[in-house]
Design a protein around this nucleic acid. Structure first.
Lengths: 150, 150
DNA sequence: GTTGATGCAAAGGCTTTGCAACTAA
DNA sequence: TTAGTTGCAAAGCCTTTGCATCAAC
């Protein structure tokens, strides 16, 4: 079952890299800074953020590689969205995602009650023969109109 | 595979098509038959199934289009998986998905209690300004050791 | 100096699209 | 007949990869 913690800040990020034998390159630092700032983002958004903030020279390919590598060691979480792209999430706690279809935007929904409930539930009700690594609760939404509600 | 409330069977499928002004082509029938048989599948799996069963002449592109079109009218549900491909699910109830990382397999987990609970919860706790179209509860899992066969 | 990381461009894999030919109704 | 569909091939899009170069350690 997943652990409850937040994304490492920059200094602990450096020591995690070191402990994994990974180099603290300017590109990795910039990507992580972007992720801390954005919370969650696609590779492209991270790239744009770095370009805009001018925190490092980097290419899109490297952003992809870095995000992929860092999520492989558990620093980020990979989230495929319904438009079939990949987002990464810097916050690794169990929480809820809201995907706005029209805007293709992924947002967090903080709902401690539901998250805690789900985590507790699947601790006891894991599918037979499996161990649960992640619980991903994904709400696909559209903006509600001010008129009638269903 | 069990289904408490299933996707429309073939006759109701035909009438749904008719009601939507869509034609009951052999390709659509074959795709739907495959989906009923498979429960959930990627476009490629559906295509392979149709080829194997030889239920219709069809191309991959058409399978993609058909699945996409039918999910747009709510007959199937689109499920992006963590390997960044798209699966479709014939069961439109809120239910849980278990994605086996190693095998790239998507399975259903039937858990009426949790599904009902989640559905009820988000009816009252929809994110502000949004209306929830789908609740996707996705468990990313790995096999626990003591299990061999699916 | 070593070893791993980045940049670049090209390839890859899944999915969508445009258009002519076709067919269910 | 005719509006909607399929087939085909090509394009699209996001993402990954191979290899030479470069830089953190």
């Amino acid at each position: 079952m997943r652990r409850t913690r937040t994304a490492p800040d920059m200094e602990s990020f450096r020591s995690i890299l070191k402990s994994k034998g990974l180099k603290a390159t300017p590109q990795r630092i910039a990507v992580h800074a972007a992720m801390l700032a954005l919370g969650h983002a696609s590779a492209d958004l991270v790239y744009e953020h770095i370009k805009k903030e001018d925190t490092a020279e980097v290419t899109v390919a490297s952003v992809y590689n870095i995000l992929s590598g860092l999520s492989a060691i558990g620093i980020y979480r990979r989230i495929p969205t319904s438009d079939n792209r990949v987002w990464y999430d810097a916050i690794t706690r169990t929480h809820l995602h809201v995907f706005d279809r029209k805007r293709s935007e992924l947002k967090d929904l903080v709902d401690e009650d539901f998250s805690a409930m789900a985590a507790a539930y699947f601790k006891d009700h894991a599918p037979k023969g499996y161990k649960v690594d992640e619980i991903d609760i994904h709400l696909v939404c559209h903006r509600s109109r001010n008129t009638k509600k269903q």
